[in-house]
Every structure is written in structure tokens, then in C-alpha cells.
Design a protein around this nucleic acid. Structure first.
Lengths: 193, 193
DNA sequence: AATAATGTACCAAACGGTCGGTACAATATT
DNA sequence: AATATTGTACCGACCGTTTGGTACATTATT
């Protein structure tokens, strides 16, 4: 790792923490400069602009997030794995004190109705999440563990919506209850409760 | 209605439309000046600052929203009324082409983790929504129309989370499917499907 | 005449971004 | 071995624009 790569990684690390806390639009390049000590010229040497930095942050956050989720799969049966994932998401936000919320959902909302690079990237991340859940649901369906009338794809999309909505509420009220309750209802729908 | 009241109402109307489309933080006072033709001095005569204008917008939007929902209650039984409300929400966003999303959820996220006036106001609005839904659920419970194990308050909170999450997804993908699907799963939980 | 409403000019701060330039190690040339 | 060249990393002053907000004179309305 060269000196430059090290600097870039360090800046990305700090910037990710700030954006996770304050959101993308509300984080200025100056904030990053102040926090990391990197000088402006150098910051723009490593990142071509704010969008380059922002997209790099989202991409890096997604990689870490999916890696974290995949390490939380302790169960053997597919529905158990889904519960593992939901619980991992809850743990993630509980550890953060429900500060910041979901960086992907936040970015989706911040970017509004534009069709820019951010929106495309966030869509891809959600689709990746849906694909993972739908795969597990399909697997559960094959072994007859899925209640009648539950189709994998729509249910997977529903789970993502529920998590995003309940993360938002948990953040707003700084309580885990919205997430815990909604996760319970998902499990009820899946016949696990 | 005096001329001044008229001006104030007109500015509030236009500003609400802009904020609904672009979000609060991404809407500048200049945007409102450009759109409405009101002059800067006059704008600051009617509203003490951006926060005053912003809070007025949210309050007004909430009044209209709840009024709109209450006019959509055509059913007689409480669970039917809940379906009416969900369908009214869907119609509301469909008419907007899923542009803008939910102004309350957007504001909640935009304001981040601060405990400012915006956050307090948005919390109140969500609580009001929960109270309405919980009342209907309790009513349904009394007449035995609620499946076993469904408690009104948590279920009401869950419904709000689901709606917020699915509105966000519908906005992101510019499709009604996320809302339609999630509404279906809510009805399934309530034993209506 | 008093007050309510409006118009215009201005402000300091913050924003993302550009610019010319420096420091220094690695490589090429002589 | 001495010198010249190149590429990476870094620096801080400066730019134009936009931001929310203020000051104050002017015009309608009552």
C-alpha cells in the first residue's frame, strides 16, 4: 500500500463516518478537511470532486454491509438465515444508537427524483439485497417451509421496505421497538411465529 | 381575507409544492422567490425565516393530508376503513407519479439526528397517524375481526413503517408495485386476504 | 395619518471547485 | 558518478456562486 493509497483510505474511512452521521448533502468537503486534517488540494487530488467521494463512500459502505450480513448467517435452514440477517441489521443499528439510519435509504431520499449516478447505485444495492432474500425464500419454498401464497420476489421486496421504514422510525424515536416489532410481523408472515 | 393573508397563502401553496418535489434542505428561499414572484422583503415579512416557512409548510401539509384521508373512509367496518386509508395513500402518490415521496418521512430523514422543531413536529404527525390506525384496530378487535395475537398499537406502528418504507421504494423505482405489494401483506396480517 | 404590504439593494458566510506551485523519491540520461 | 527528467503526493490561496438574512425606502390599504 503506497503512501497515497493509505491517505485515500484514511480519508474515505473518516468521510464515511461523517456521512453516516450527517448525510451526504449535509456533509461539506470542509467537514472532511477539518476531521481528517487532509488539505484541500490533496483531497481533490485523491477524489475528482464531491460526487466521486460520495459514490466511493456508498460503494465502500455497501461492500462492508453485505460482508457483515453474510458473516451473520449461523442458521442452517433458509428461514433461519433470514432471521439471522434481520437480527444482524438490528444489531448494526443498535450499536450505532440508531444514529444515522440507513445510509442507502438516506441517499435515495436525499437525491430526490433525479436519475443520477447515486440513484442508480442505490437501486443496485437494494436489488442485491432483494436477490439475497428472494434466494433464501425460494429455497424455503422448495422444502415446503413457506406458507401458502407467499411468493419469494414480492416478499423479499416487502422485507426490504419494512426494514427501511422501521429503521427510519427507530432513528426518529431513538428506540429499537419499531424494528423489533416489524421484524416480528415479518416472521409471522413467514410462519415462523 | 386581506391582501396580505392572500399573499401568505399563495406563497405557502407554491412553497409546499416545491418542497414536496425537492425536499426542504434542497429548496432555497430564492427558489420560492423565483417560482412565486414574491419579492424577498415581502417573503421575510410574511415568514420570519426559512424555518418558520418550513414548519408552516409541514403543518399545512399535515392538515391537508389528514383531511384527505378522513374523506376517503367509505367503508363501515374498521378494517375496511384501514384499507380505505391505505388505498387513499396509494392514490395520493400515484397521482403524483411517485415524485417527492412522503414529505414527513423526507423531513424526518433530512433533519438527521437533531432534536429540533422539525423532528418534534414530524414525530407528532406520525403519532397522530398511529393513533388513528390503532383506534380502528382496537375497534376491530372488539368486534372480533382481528386475528389472534395482533395488538393494536404495535400493529399501527408497523403499518406506518411499512407505508413509509414502501413509499420510499415506490419513489425510487417510480413504480406502484412496492406499495401495492406491501399493502397486500398488511391485509394478510390483518386476516383480510 | 397610521399601518400594512411591498420592492430593492445589500451583506457575510459557506459552498464546491480551481489554480499555480512545492517536496521528494524514482528513474533515465550523460 | 553526476545530472536531468518524470510522476506522485501534497499545499494553501483564490474564484465565482449561492446561501439565509437584513436594512430601509416606497407604495397600498384602512
Amino acid at each position: 500500500m503506497t503512501k497515497g493509497e493509505e491517505t485515500r483510505a484514511r480519508v474515505l474511512e473518516s468521510a464515511m463516518a461523517i456521512v453516516n452521521r450527517k448525510g451526504l448533502r449535509n456533509t461539506s468537503m470542509q467537514d472532511i478537511i477539518d476531521e481528517t486534517g487532509v488539505k484541500k488540494g490533496n483531497l481533490y487530488f485523491h477524489f475528482s470532486g464531491k460526487d466521486d467521494l460520495g459514490l466511493s463512500i456508498i460503494r465502500e459502505a455497501a461492500e462492508r454491509y453485505f460482508e457483515y450480513l453474510s458473516k451473520s448467517l449461523s442458521s442452517n435452514d433458509p428461514l433461519g438465515k433470514i432471521r439471522n440477517i434481520l437480527e444482524a441489521v438490528l444489531r448494526f443499528h443498535r450499536r450505532r444508537g440508531f444514529v444515522g439510519g440507513c445510509i442507502f435509504g438516506n441517499t435515495a431520499l436525499e437525491m430526490g427524483d433525479t436519475d443520477g449516478e447515486y440513484t442508480v447505485l442505490v437501486k443496485e444495492i437494494f436489488e442485491r439485497w432483494v436477490r439475497i432474500l428472494a434466494g433464501l425464500l425460494r429455497e424455503a419454498g422448495k422444502s415446503g417451509a413457506l406458507p401458502a401464497g407467499i411468493r419469494p420476489e414480492p416478499m423479499a421486496r416487502h422485507i426490504v421496505s419494512v426494514m427501511e421504514g422501521s429503521i427510519m422510525m427507530a432513528r426518529l424515536y431513538k428506540r429499537e421497538d419499531p424494528m423489533v416489532e416489524s421484524m416480528g410481523y415479518i416472521q409471522k408472515l413467514l410462519g415462523m411465529k
